[in-house]
Structure formats: structure tokens, C-alpha cells
Design a protein around this nucleic acid. Structure first.
Length: 900
RNA sequence: GGGCGAUUAGCUCAGUUGGUUAGAGCGUCUGUUUUACACACAGAAAGUCACAGGUUCGAGUCCUGUAUCGCCCACCA
């Protein structure tokens, strides 16, 4: 007995069990066609990343789902992996190189990739070990990295297939250019930030009409040098006379046409727009419509080039802006400068404003767009919470081609080769351009495209590429036909476009069969975002992001898991604080001690199966409390089952907590104490305790896997070598088979006894006897049944309340009283009672009753209520009124007695 | 400009199809080494359910509007 410590110590237990689980291979997704398949693919974290609270939330949910699936007898697999994270990793490695005074570009592609690989080897895989600490039960034999050979081939195969099908093309387009990372970005990687900037109002002179000007507003005077037109709305009468004439661009001085285009908003500013086709996406389109020349005045790093003129050449774009304004002012062309707030697109990784830039890039016209929409609309794929369906549909409705090329080296190089010596190779001519997963056989005659693919253009095939696609043998080996489509995807709504939507399109495009067989997953659970208590996003720079590993060291992984899940309502953001983890730690400690208590009672009972425990029960010895706790257990399990179906994880933690803490420990274990001294009831009580503890461990296991595994074995519930994760939490059928029927009316009596005990304790506390164990009570019973209920439970109640006795009297006492579920309960005070204070207290209670009576009476005297409300509700109200009136009468008589 | 979410006790949140006197955890206050657990036990205080209308016999719950906060989408310079 003494070897069981008073407090649960998670660290040894957790490491011990994780090692055993892995060793036994119980996380392996070994195909068993006699079972139902259940599969999850992990959202692959960055290979060089470290565990954040976001990962904790996300992966705990996945682990809960996969463990519940295993318990439910499904053949479950959770496929883990990591992502090479192209731009993000390249940026980090480049920064590292810069510290050493080196430059990636100078090193060249081969060298850089070697260095990046070393960096990956050094920092990579840490997060995998951290996920293990958290308890994640992934099938580690299936670990996939997006730059693995097999996976890379799949990425290229997807590219080649789409190219051949005409979805992928190369073209000179306006793209979002990051001047820091020197690469194009997709629209999704641009983050709009509201900025306080200036709106410059300036004027351009009309050519040949000295003294006549057009006033123009701009936020970007540094692009004046690239202006090739001035535009007005064709319906704008103010400017009709100027259309067809020319305006004078101040520097470099040139005459540019004044054109009319519907795009121009007459109501904005002066209604005149300068057109810079090379530096603005809208201007570019207008330029196309009017055949305007495109003058690019910037270098890739957003400094000005020679076309901007001598004075500007080499200046950064913001220095150029200042200079341009200064020059305008000097030339008398600056009319006004106003404060102005507008949205500026920022590069996600570079954290600088992106520059719209015309460049040659690869684009993808998305495949299966309308089917992707239909898949979610039809319910083939369900979103939790469903409101994300609208967001998803809206994006698909407005979808634009995807820029998939990146001017970086860390990633999958575009599998396109150009024949050496051919200028402007024709992409549709196989003699000049080669597209294939493998390089051309005569590689020496070809140059491969320098660009790499957007990372998301590799992870979008994740659900089936991790199962061996497109290699038929690998697919067979890894069980694509069994595990695909995956069951649940757990991810954040921030990547609904980046990843979720694209995976759906990829699955529909590349997998065979009916729609239901091609979709990548059946359910998508969107988590909230973890924030701090001030509601701020967790970030390294704010320093408000706790290190999950420190928390695990302090509270245990189970405590962290339970704590996080307890405050993670479906789809709402989570305000996280360590107090939540304390709650989880306390829950584990309580589990530990409840089991410790049971073990201290000993008994050498056979716990090796639910049937064996049930066999120890003498059903004739079951009392109201046994029925009560078993009834609560049944309801708890049933509710939890429903909560799983609707992904209400926080609700499950509440049910576990409240059943285990309040019903089981707070009441049942306490009333057990008296009955355990009664030899005839002892065995049955211990058996009921074992049933409850066993089922609690099973129900709690997905949330707190380590401690439940430990206790499962310590309590002898598992047979030799049997892990708790393989045991079904169902028990209703076993009850039936054992002839155990829960008597709900007996269970209802427990509620009366609980109320009675609380009132009795409150009376004691009120009269400063809270710590005394010898209080004497007297009940004036509401009826004979209530008197009998008290008599049957008097021993338990003495222990629970801390009383030396409960007498029963039809006439009551002249003493402080409380109206309980069993009748008027008097506390016998040897010293006199302060009648005044007592009257005051009763008056307070009377007021409460009176207002309840009033509202109930009002309802019942309302003819509409009686005639329209359901019979059940009306009947309930009647019973309630009777009850209230009886209590009121009691109070009145007591008050009458006291005031004598 | 469009869309979505939130608003319930000091704090963080439950409240499932409308139905007794709105709940929990933390925190606060009081008491307790009662034969598992002070990471505990017992008791207590604490809410005009953001606001204004409406539907209904009945609204925290449904409808309309308003306010505040947050998020997403959007090529007005």
C-alpha cells in the first residue's frame, strides 16, 4: 500500500508507456479487412519547426480521434510527416549564411542545397520527438517527408499530368513579387495590412496647352517614371475634351496619352488615374486593353533601375518616393499631400510590401473546381463547424489561376527542360521543351527550368501521396484502397485555401472512381487559434507563447492535453492559460488517488475483464447509490458517444470531469466508505467501484492516454499484454448479459439524499459546527416514504454530514431548520438559538420561495399556457407549485414557532 | 465595400430541438490534517444573459435592428 505515492508523477510513467507502445507496434496501421478502416493524415509541420501550442491542440485532437477509433475496434492509422516549407526554410538558411558573410546566390544552386540539407538534418525531426512526448500515436514507420524520393516523384507526376492535360502553362503575368525573398508568391501568400500612408495630389500638364493641367491622386509617386498613360472614365463629362490628347509626365519628361477606361471611378479623388502598367495589376489590364507600353522601372529587389532615370537609379522604392515628391514640389506640380489609410499587400515571409511585378511564371488553372464545390455542398465532405463551407464556396467561386513557380532552390525543381541553343522555346513542341518526371535521356542537351514549385503544390497531394501514389505497388502495400479516403482531417481555418481546398481538388483530379472514393477526407474539423489571455495570437516576437515541453515537464502531457481540450470549444479561438493545465493535472491526480483508494481497500478481486467484475456483484445487495452511480455512468458514456459524433471535445472533458469528480468521487466513494465496513455489502460495493473506475479509464483514455494506461495495468483491468487503447469502452451490453438492470427510481432517490446532505452540512456550517463530527439532527419527514429513505441511509449520512445521529419526529424541534427534499431538518443546538437571526435567514429563503410561487402561479392561471403548452410541461408546473407551496407552508409554520 | 464570428458571475467559458428559481472551472470569502487526494474536502458570496424592438402561453435560446470587439474576403488610385 505505502508504495503507491500520494501524488501522481507523470514523467516516468509517460516515457515508460510511450516506449512500450512503440515497441509493441500498437500504433501501426496494419491492414485488417475484417475491420472498418479509420485514417488520418497529419497536417505536416515544418521539418525544422518546434512544437507550438497550436500543434498541441491540433495533434491532441487527432490523437483523441485515432485512439477512440482503436478502442472502437476500427483498423486505424495516423500517417505522420513533415513539410520542407520552401520559402520559409530557404529564408532561414539564407539568413544563417548572411551571418557568415556568405550569399546563397553566390554559392550557387548545388552548394546551397547541400548546406540547406545539412541545416535540415541538424534542426529537422525535433518536432517529431516532441509529438511523441505529447503522446501522439502515429504510425512512425510511415513517416513521410515532402522531399523524400518517392514523395518528390509524386509531386512531379502531378505536375506532369496536369501539364499534359493543359492545366499548367507558363506566361508573363503580373504576380505578387517579394523584393526580400526575390520570388513570386501566390495571392494567398499576400497579407493585406491597413497602413497609414499619404495620398499625393499632383498635376500633369496637357501637352501643347501650357497652363492647363489634370489633377491626379496617387499613393505611389515613385512609379511616375513608369506611367504610360493617364485615364479618365468615358462617361466623365469633366474630362471628355481631354481624351485623345496627351499629358506631360514630369520625369523622365514624356508625353503620354489621355485615355478613357470604364475602370476609372469618377467619384474617387479627382477622377483621373495615372496608368503604370508595369507596377499595378489593374493598370496592367488597362494597359493591355489600350496597347500601352510597359515600362518597368524597378529591379527585382525593388530598387529603381536605369529606366527610372539617372537621379532615381539605384534608390530604394521608398527613397525614390521621397525624391519624387520633392521633385514634384520643386516643379510646382504637387498640389496637396493628405493622410490616407489604405490596404497594402505584405509578403507573408519577407514581411515587406509586395511589389506587383511582371514576370515569367508557371501558372495552374485549377482542376475540378466545380466538383470540389459540389463535394462539400453535397455533404460528401463535411466541415466542422459548418460555417466554413461558405468561406470555401466563396473562394472557389472567385478562384484565379495559381502561380506555382518560386524563384527559390529549396523545393521540387520544376520538371521542365529546354533544349540548349533554342531561343524562345515553344512549350508545346517536344523537340524544344521536355516535360517529365525523369530528366530527358540526353540530359546534356537540355537546361532544366531554374524555378521550384510552391510548397503547397507539393502538399496538396498529401492524403494520397503518403499512401504511395502514383506507384501501384506502393499503393497496394500501404493500403490506399483500404485507408483512402481518409476519415477526418484536423487543421486550422487559416489554411483552408492554401491546403484544404487544394487537397480536395487534387484528390478529385488524381484519384479514380466515384466522387465519394476520390475525395481526400470525409470530415474536416477546423480548430480555433490559440491565443493568450489578452486574446493576442501567440507569437515568438510577443514572447507570449509558452513552450509546450516546459508545460509537459511541469504538469505532464496528460494534464496539458486535458487542459487544452477543456478550453477548446468547437471552432472558437482559445484563450489559453496555464491554469487550464492545472485543471488537467488535478484531474489526473484525482484519477490516481481514486484508484489508490480502491487499491488500499485490497480484496484480491479478479479485475481482468468486465465480465469477471460483474460476476462479483450480488445484485440483491445493490442499493440506491449503486443504481445512482451506474445510471450516471451509463448516461455519461452515452453523452460522450454523441459528443464524439459532433466533435464536441470540450463537452467530453466536462462530462468526464463532472461524472468522475462529482458523482463518483464526491458522492459514491464517500457513501461507499460506510458500506465497505459492512461485510455483507463490501464485495458488491468494491465491484461497483471497479466497474466505474474501469469505464472511466476507458472513456478518459483518448484524452489522457498515459495515466489511464498506467492505472489500467495497476488496477489489473488489462489482461497480460493488453493495452487499454485496444479495449472497447462499451459496457451496456455486458450489463444486460450479467442481468444487471439499473433502477432509475432508486437512482432518483440519490438526488434527494444529496440535497438532504448538502442542507444538513450547510446548517452545521451556519452554526459554526462545520468541523464538528457530533451534530445531532432531527427530521420532520415530508411523508412516510421519506422517513424510510432516511432510515435506510442513516449510516452513510452520518459519515457524510459528520453527524452523530438523525432522529425522526413528527412534531419537529424549536431549533434552526432547513427545508430539505426529505422534509424539515432541525439541527439540535445545546445552547440557545438566536431567534432573531434565524427568522431573518428564514425570511430570506421565504422571499425566494414566494417569488417562485408567484411566477409559477401566474403561468398556471394563464389560460393560454394551460391550453397551449404541452401536457408534460403543464403537469410539471403543477407539481412544482405543489412542492413550493408545501415548502412555503413549512417555513411559515417554523417562523410562527420561532416568533412566539 | 461584402461575409463570418463573439458579447452569459471578477476571469475563462457551458447552456444540444424555446419550457421549473440560468450552470461549471478558476479566482474571492469562511471553515477543515473527516481512515484516496490541500493538485483535497465542506460551506458562502457573486449574473438586468451587450442594447432596443418583435414573434410566442413562455425567449439566454427564434426574428429584425443597433453597439462594441475580432477574423476572413475584395484591383478605388
Amino acid at each position: 500500500m505505502s508504495e503507491i505515492s500520494k501524488a501522481y508523477n507523470p514523467s516516468e510513467v509517460e516515457d515508460k508507456w510511450y516506449a512500450k507502445w512503440v515497441e509493441s507496434g500498437c500504433f501501426k496501421g496494419v491492414i485488417d479487412r475484417s475491420k472498418q478502416a479509420y485514417s488520418i493524415v497529419i497536417p505536416p509541420p515544418n521539418v525544422t519547426g518546434v512544437l507550438t501550442m497550436g500543434h498541441v491542440l491540433n495533434n491532441t485532437i487527432q490523437d483523441i480521434l485515432i485512439r477512440r477509433a482503436r478502442q472502437s475496434g476500427k483498423c486505424a492509422v495516423w500517417i505522420p510527416g513533415t513539410d520542407h516549407a520552401g520559402v520559409a526554410t530557404q529564408t532561414k538558411v539564407e539568413a544563417e549564411l548572411r551571418k557568415q558573410g556568405l550569399s546563397a546566390r553566390a554559392l550557387g544552386r548545388e552548394k546551397f542545397i547541400q548546406i540547406a540539407k545539412k541545416w535540415r538534418d541538424k534542426h529537422g525531426g525535433i518536432i517529431i520527438e516532441q509529438l511523441k512526448k505529447l503522446g501522439a500515436s502515429c504510425d512512425w514507420d510511415r513517416l513521410v517527408y515532402t522531399l523524400d524520393d518517392d514523395y518528390s516523384k509524386a509531386v512531379l507526376a502531378a505536375f506532369v499530368k496536369l501539364f499534359k492535360a493543359g492545366y499548367i502553362y507558363r506566361g508573363k503575368r503580373m504576380v505578387n513579387w517579394c523584393p526580400v525573398n526575390l520570388t513570386a508568391l501566390s495571392d494567398e501568400e499576400v497579407i493585406m495590412k491597413p497602413m497609414k500612408s499619404k495620398l499625393y495630389k499632383m498635376r500633369y500638364e496637357i501637352a501643347g496647352e501650357p497652363g492647363r493641367f489634370l489633377e491626379i491622386s496617387t499613393t505611389r509617386p515613385e512609379t511616375i517614371m513608369g506611367d504610360t498613360a493617364v485615364a479618365v472614365n468615358p462617361d466623365d463629362a469633366r474630362y471628355a475634351e481631354f481624351v485623345g490628347k496627351f499629358a506631360v509626365r514630369p520625369f523622365p519628361r514624356a508625353e503620354i496619352p489621355i485615355i478613357a477606361d470604364k475602370y476609372v471611378d469618377m467619384k474617387f479623388g479627382t477622377g483621373v488615374l495615372k496608368i503604370t502598367p508595369a507596377h499595378d495589376a489593374a493598370d496592367f489590364e488597362i494597359g493591355c486593353r489600350h496597347n500601352l507600353p510597359v515600362v518597368d522601372v524597378m529591379n527585382p529587389d525593388a530598387t529603381m533601375n536605369e529606366l527610372a532615370g539617372e537621379e532615381f537609379c539605384g534608390l530604394d522604392r521608398y527613397a525614390a518616393r521621397e525624391l519624387a515628391v520633392k521633385k514634384l514640389d520643386e516643379m510646382g506640380l504637387l498640389v496637396a499631400v493628405e493622410d490616407y489609410e489604405n490596404n497594402v499587400g505584405y509578403s507573408e515571409r519577407g514581411d515587406v510590401p509586395i511589389e506587383p511585378r511582371l514576370s515569367d511564371q508557371w501558372f495552374m488553372r485549377y482542376p475540378k473546381v466545380s466538383e470540389a464545390k459540389a463535394a462539400v455542398e453535397s455533404g460528401a465532405i463535411k466541415f466542422w463547424p459548418a460555417r466554413w463551407e461558405k468561406v470555401y464556396a466563396h473562394w472557389l467561386d472567385n478562384i484565379r489561376d495559381w502561380c506555382i513557380s518560386r524563384q527559390i532552390w529549396w523545393g521540387h525543381r520544376i520538371p521542365v527542360w529546354y533544349r540548349k541553343g533554342v531561343e524562345n522555346p515553344d512549350i508545346n513542341n517536344p523537340e524544344e521543351v521536355y516535360v517529365g518526371v525523369e530528366p530527358p535521356p540526353d540530359a546534356e542537351n537540355w537546361n532544366q527550368d531554374e524555378d521550384s514549385l510552391d510548397t503547397w503544390a507539393s502538399s496538396w497531394i498529401w492524403p494520397f501521396a503518403t499512401m504511395g501514389w502514383p506507384d501501384a505497388d506502393r499503393q497496394k502495400e500501404l493500403g490506399t484502397d483500404f485507408f483512402y479516403p481518409t476519415s477526418d482531417l484536423v487543421t486550422g481555418p487559416d489554411i483552408i485555401f492554401f491546403w484544404v481546398a487544394r487537397m480536395i481538388m487534387a484528390g478529385l483530379e488524381f484519384m479514380p472512381g466515384q466522387m465519394s472514393a476520390r475525395i481526400p477526407f470525409k470530415n474536416v474539423y477546423f480548430t480555433g487559434i490559440i491565443r493568450d489571455m489578452q486574446g493576442r495570437k501567440m507569437s515568438k516576437s510577443l514572447g507570449n507563447s509558452p513552450d509546450p515541453l516546459e508545460i509537459i515537464a511541469k504538469y505532464g502531457a496528460d494534464g496539458l492535453r486535458f487542459g487544452v481540450m477543456s478550453c477548446a470549444p468547437q471552432g472558437q479561438d482559445i484563450l489559453f492559460s496555464e491554469e487550464r493545465v492545472e485543471l488537467g493535472r488535478n484531474f489526473c491526480n484525482k484519477l490516481w488517488n481514486a484508484c489508490r483508494f480502491r487499491r488500499m481497500a485490497g480484496g484480491g478481486a479478479d479485475n481482468s475483464s468486465l465480465e469477471k467484475i460483474l460476476a462479483r456483484l450480488d445484485t440483491s445487495k445493490l442499493d440506491a447509490d449503486d443504481h445512482g452511480i451506474l445510471s450516471s455512468l451509463l448516461k455519461c458514456a452515452e453523452h460522450i458517444g454523441r459528443d464524439y459524433e459532433s466533435y464536441q471535445f470540450n463537452s467530453i472533458t466536462q462530462r468526464l470531469y463532472s461524472f468522475f469528480w462529482n458523482d463518483f468521487c464526491g458522492w459514491y466513494l464517500e457513501v461507499s466508505k460506510a458500506r465497505m465496513e459492512d461485510a455483507s455489502a463490501r464485495e458488491t460495493v468494491l465491484a461497483v467501484q471497479d466497474i466505474c473506475l474501469r469505464q472511466i479509464l476507458l472513456l478518459a483514455h483518448p484524452f489522457v492516454p498515459f495515466i489511464t494506461e498506467e492505472l489500467w495495468h495497476a488496477m489489473g483491468y488489462g489482461g497480460e499484454g493488453c493495452f487499454i487503447q485496444n479495449v472497447s469502452p462499451e459496457f451496456a451490453e455486458a450489463f444486460d448479459a450479467a442481468g444487471l438492470y439499473v433502477d432509475e427510481s432508486a437512482a432518483a432517490d440519490v438526488e434527494l439524499l444529496k440535497d438532504f446532505a448538502t442542507k444538513a452540512r450547510a446548517l452545521k456550517a451556519q452554526f459554526d459546527m462545520g468541523s464538528r463530527r457530533d451534530a445531532q439532527f432531527c427530521l420532520q419527514p415530508a411523508d412516510a416514504g421519506k422517513a424510510e429513505l432516511l432510515r435506510a441511509n442513516v449510516e452513510k449520512l452520518k459519515k457524510l454530514v459528520g453527524a452523530s445521529g438523525f432522529s425522526i419526529s413528527e412534531s419537529g424541534l424549536d431549533a434552526p431548520v432547513s427545508i430539505t427534499s426529505l422534509g424539515s431538518l432541525f439541527i439540535d443546538l445545546s445552547s440557545g438559538v438566536d431567534a432573531g437571526a434565524e427568522l431573518l435567514r428564514l425570511q430570506k429563503e421565504r422571499d425566494k420561495l414566494e417569488s417562485a410561487v408567484k411566477s409559477t402561479k401566474a403561468r398556471l392561471s394563464n389560460g393560454d399556457f394551460v391550453s397551449k403548452a404541452p401536457e408534460k410541461v403543464v403537469e410539471g408546473a403543477r407539481r412544482q407549485l405543489e412542492d413550493l407551496l408545501a415548502k412555503l407552508a413549512e417555513i411559515d409554520s417554523l417562523m410562527g414557532r420561532l416568533s412566539k
